[in-house]
Simulated assay, not measured.
Amino acid sequence: MPDYACADFILRSEIPLPELIEVGADAAREVVEIRRGAVAATGEGFLQRDGDTAVLRLPGVARFRVEGGRSITVDVDETCSERNLRLFLLGSALGILIHQRGLFPLHANAVVIDGVAVAFAGHSGAGKSTLAAHFSAAGHTVLSDDVCVIGLDAEQRPIVYPGLPRVKLWADAARLHGHDIDGLERIHDDMDKYQLGLPASPDQPPVPLAAVIRLVREGEQPAGLQRLRGRAAVQLLMAETYRPQVVSALGLQEAHFGQCVSVAATVAVLDWTRKWGHEVFQAEVEQLIRQLEQASIVSVGV
């Protein structure tokens, strides 16, 4: 089975995962196995837990048994395409495994600016992936799109691990960045959304996290960059957690709250309310970078 780089571990998978980078053996990283097999149904809920094992049931896709952050068994529905299967395997199922491993996944992308990671969170359609594609085109490393995996270094400081080296763009955003969508792969058989591969290295180390920024459209609150502190910062991180319903289903509420408090106390947590529209996008990003520089969060502009 091929091995793929992912977060702080290696995925050894019976299911081909072209979205990830194949790597050789690495004794320093734990191996997580993905294999095909029978997974028994467990009740009516979409997610059931028994000890350190969780079963995720997605009708028409698969049942996934995720065991203790060590393995994922996939029981594929015969009607599900390989493309659709990978979307949920590398999304919801992998998100459960990341939670089980004690890591903190945000529903965000992460961009390296001046040697530090800045994570951009926000609801679907807030422009996270478009922003990541912009930074990539400007020469910045994009560590992750959609799921930003946060861990701790030896000194207990938050770091961001590299994730899937691609961004997911709606057709209009892909065209805006000069891509012919006929040459891109859809992320799902029935969605007009495409994945764009990004430059990546299997040896990319984790990067210190400097800020978490939530994207907000102008009109929802006053425009500009607003720093959040204390309870407001913790609440933002809790709200922007990837698959937050998994936290309670796995009984991880206390640990998750501790992660949010730790990150909020260590890095800048901000709301960025910006004007909307492709015609003002570049100017808004440039203004954001200037504000981050002024706040000493980053020191080199785009």
Results as ranks from 00 to 15, higher is better:
V234W: 00
Q204N: 09
G219A: 01
A233I: 04
Q235R: 11
R217E: 12
L225M: 08
A268Y: 04
V234F: 02
A264R: 00
A268T: 07
V207A: 08
A265P: 09
G251D: 08
V207L: 10
V207T: 10
E220R: 12
V246Q: 06
Q245S: 14
R243I: 14
V247T: 03
A210Y: 01
G230R: 01
S262P: 07
V269M: 04
G224A: 06
L250M: 09
P244M: 14
A210L: 09
C260D: 04
V246S: 06
V269G: 04
A268P: 07
V263Y: 03
Q259G: 09
E220S: 15
P244T: 05
Q253I: 15
G258D: 13
D203Q: 13
A249E: 07
H256F: 02
G230F: 01
A264H: 00
A232E: 14
G224K: 00
E240V: 15
G219S: 00
T241W: 05
V216K: 00
Q221R: 11
G230Q: 06
Q226V: 15
G251M: 06
A223P: 08
D203M: 11
S248M: 12
A239V: 07
A268L: 12
V267E: 05
F257P: 05
L215C: 01
L252T: 04
L228H: 02
G258C: 12
L236M: 10
V234G: 07
H256D: 08
L250F: 02
E218F: 05
L228E: 04
A233M: 09
L225W: 03
R231M: 14
T266Q: 14
A232S: 13
A249I: 06
T266D: 12
E240N: 13
I213F: 02
Q221T: 10
E220V: 15
V263N: 07
A255L: 14
P205Y: 03
V212N: 04
R243K: 11
V246F: 05
A264I: 02
V269R: 00
V261H: 05
S248C: 14
V261R: 06
L236K: 00
P222Y: 05
L237F: 01
Y242I: 11
C260K: 01
L236P: 01
V246N: 02
G258I: 09
E218V: 14
G251A: 10
R243Q: 14
L209N: 00
L228N: 04
V234S: 06
P206K: 02
A233L: 08
A211N: 01
L228V: 07
D203T: 12
T241L: 14
Y242S: 12
V261Y: 06
E220L: 15
L225H: 02
Q226Y: 14
P206V: 08
G258H: 09
Q235W: 08
